[in-house]
């Protein structure tokens, strides 16, 4: 059959798809490309240079912001992943228990609410409680919206796994906690890792909530980035963007590959 007569082909669809992928990656490519530009005007290319990376690495407030972001992301990821792992274990083993559906909805609720609403709600709560410490505010708020991102991959992993191994371990007189640590946890580890990596990325990238809650001393990287955009269009922004892009893409890719592999290996 000649290709043009194949009823499954639609003229123009291929072109649209190619243009779509170009459009999808154009902004990322443009920012990375311009980060190596020596000109101080953001969007005019004049030659290759690494000076904006050097400028970024010499920028004290920027490094402080990176440190704040890393601390918040690490602690929030640890909390979110632990909470999500426990909830996922219970919910996948007892799908018919009372309140299972409600619990699942509540865990995923941060995904359903507009982030700005959650951000102002948390701001009011903290101001009422008199919680003024910026770091604590950020860690608590980030733990909340990271939880569903940790929960979903772990839940998916547990869903596809039979309980035979765990039961076998318990038949061999392993205590429940031992059975979990030695048998179940290693089996669901890919899901746990991908959940943790996704929540780390989500926390590192967050702007809306962090901007609402940040206090003087605790500016996160995206919040600092925003203040730079407002101040001036320095090419340093391109260098910082590129570093953020690389971090997000590497972690998200690792998370996706891990969960896909895990799914393929499973019977």
């Amino acid at each position: 059959m000649k290709k043009s007569h194949d009823i499954r082909r639609y003229p123009g669809f291929g072109t649209v798809t190619v243009l779509f992928f170009l459009w999808l990656y154009a902004p990322i490519a443009v920012v990375i490309w311009l980060s190596f530009n020596e000109n101080r005007i953001v969007s005019v290319w004049t030659g290759f240079s690494l000076k904006w990376y050097r400028a970024a690495l010499d920028n004290g407030p920027l490094l402080d912001a990176v440190r704040t972001s890393l601390i918040v992301a690490v602690v929030a990821t640890a909390i979110a992943t632990t909470v999500a792992l426990m909830a996922a274990m219970v919910l996948s083993r007892n799908p018919t228990m009372r309140g299972a559906k409600l619990s699942e909805t509540v865990v995923n609720l941060p995904l359903l609410l507009p982030e700005i609403v959650l951000a102002v709600a948390t701001l009011i709560l903290f101001s009422q409680l008199g919680l003024a410490d910026g770091m604590t505010r950020l860690i608590v708020a980030h733990s909340t919206f990271c939880t569903p991102f940790a929960f979903l991959p772990i839940r998916a992993r547990l869903q596809g796994m039979s309980t035979d191994y765990e039961e076998a371990a318990q038949d061999l007189y392993a205590k429940p906690l031992t059975a979990f640590r030695r048998v179940t946890l290693p089996l669901i580890l890919p899901g746990v890792f991908s959940g943790a990596m996704l929540s780390f990325v989500i926390s590192m990238d967050d702007f809306i909530t962090s901007n609402m809650l940040a206090t003087g001393g605790t500016t996160t990287l995206p919040v600092y980035f925003f203040s730079l955009i407002k101040k001036s269009a320095s090419p340093e922004l391109n260098a910082i963007s590129t570093l953020l892009i690389v971090l997000s893409l590497v972690l998200a890719s690792a998370a996706l590959v891990l969960s896909m592999r895990a799914m393929r290996r499973d019977p």
Binding site: P27, I28, V30, V31, L198, V201, M204, D205, F207, P222, F225, F226, I229, L237, S241, L244, I245, S248, L249, L251, A252
Partner: peptide, 10 residues
């Protein structure tokens, strides 16, 4: 997964 603010900046 790229930061929202970086995408908008681009």
């Amino acid at each position: 997964w790229v930061s929202m603010i970086v995408r908008v900046y681009a």
